[in-house]
Amino acid sequence: KELVLALYDYQEKSPREVTMKKGDILTLLNSTNKDWWKVEVNGRQGAVPAAYVKKL
């Protein structure tokens, strides 16, 4: 499985998103959308802005 690093804090704004903190390591589930990537963090799945994460 592919991992990404959170470059910034992000507070979810809808139920389809997830909150992450700078430095979090997230499991990347889907990166086909260039703006929003689906990730899993702390057992929750949701979208985060692609510009806020970097593939490891």
Rank of each mutant, 00 (worst) to 15 (best):
Y8R: 14
T27D: 05
D35W: 15
L26Y: 11
E17T: 08
S14P: 06
D24E: 11
L29K: 05
A6T: 03
D9R: 02
S31T: 11
R16P: 06
L56S: 03
L3A: 06
R16E: 15
K1W: 12
I25A: 02
L29H: 06
V18Y: 04
V48Y: 01
V41S: 14
G46A: 06
S14T: 12
D24N: 06
S31Q: 12
A47W: 15
N30C: 13
K38W: 15
E40Y: 07
K55H: 09
S31V: 08
D24P: 00
A50N: 02
L28A: 02
V48W: 03
T27A: 09
A50L: 02
L5H: 04
L28K: 00
M20D: 01
Y10L: 01
L3D: 03
D35A: 10
M20R: 01
E40F: 06
E17Q: 10
E2T: 13
T27S: 08
Q11G: 07
V39L: 02
V41K: 14
T19N: 06
L7P: 01
A47Y: 15
A51I: 11
V18N: 04
L29I: 14
P49T: 02
V39Y: 00
L56K: 03
A6F: 03
R44T: 07
A51D: 10
R16H: 15
V53Q: 01
T19A: 06
G23V: 00
K34Y: 08
E17W: 03
G23K: 02
A47N: 15
R44C: 08
V39A: 00
Q11M: 13
Y52C: 14
K1E: 10
E17Y: 06
L7G: 01
R44W: 05
E17R: 05
W37N: 00
K34L: 09
K55V: 13
L26V: 07
L26E: 00
V48M: 01
V4C: 14
K13N: 10
T27V: 15
E40L: 08
K1F: 14
K1I: 13
V53S: 01
D24K: 02
G43L: 05
L3Q: 11
T19C: 07
E12F: 07
L7N: 02
L26D: 01
L7S: 02
A51N: 12
V4N: 00
L3C: 13
Y10P: 01
K22T: 07
V18M: 11
K22D: 02
Q45N: 07
K22F: 05
A51C: 15
W36P: 00
W37L: 05
W37S: 02
L3Y: 15
T27E: 10
L29A: 03
Q45K: 11
R44Y: 07
E2H: 12
S14Q: 07
T32I: 11
R44H: 08
K13Y: 05
P49R: 05
L28V: 07
V18S: 02
V53T: 03
K38L: 15
N33R: 09
A50H: 03
V18P: 01
V41P: 00
Q45E: 13
L56A: 04
G46C: 07
V41H: 15
I25L: 09
S31W: 09
T19S: 15
K13F: 06
Y52K: 07
K55P: 11
G23R: 01
V39S: 00
N42R: 11
N42A: 11
K54R: 13
Q45W: 08
A51Y: 09
V39M: 01
T19I: 03
K34T: 11
D24G: 03
Y52P: 02
V4F: 06
E40A: 08
V39K: 00
N33A: 09
P49N: 02
S31A: 13
G43N: 08
M20H: 01
G46Q: 04
A47D: 15
A47E: 15
L28D: 00
K22C: 09
V4Y: 09
V4K: 00
L28E: 00
V4L: 11
G43Q: 07
K21N: 09
W37G: 01
N30W: 07
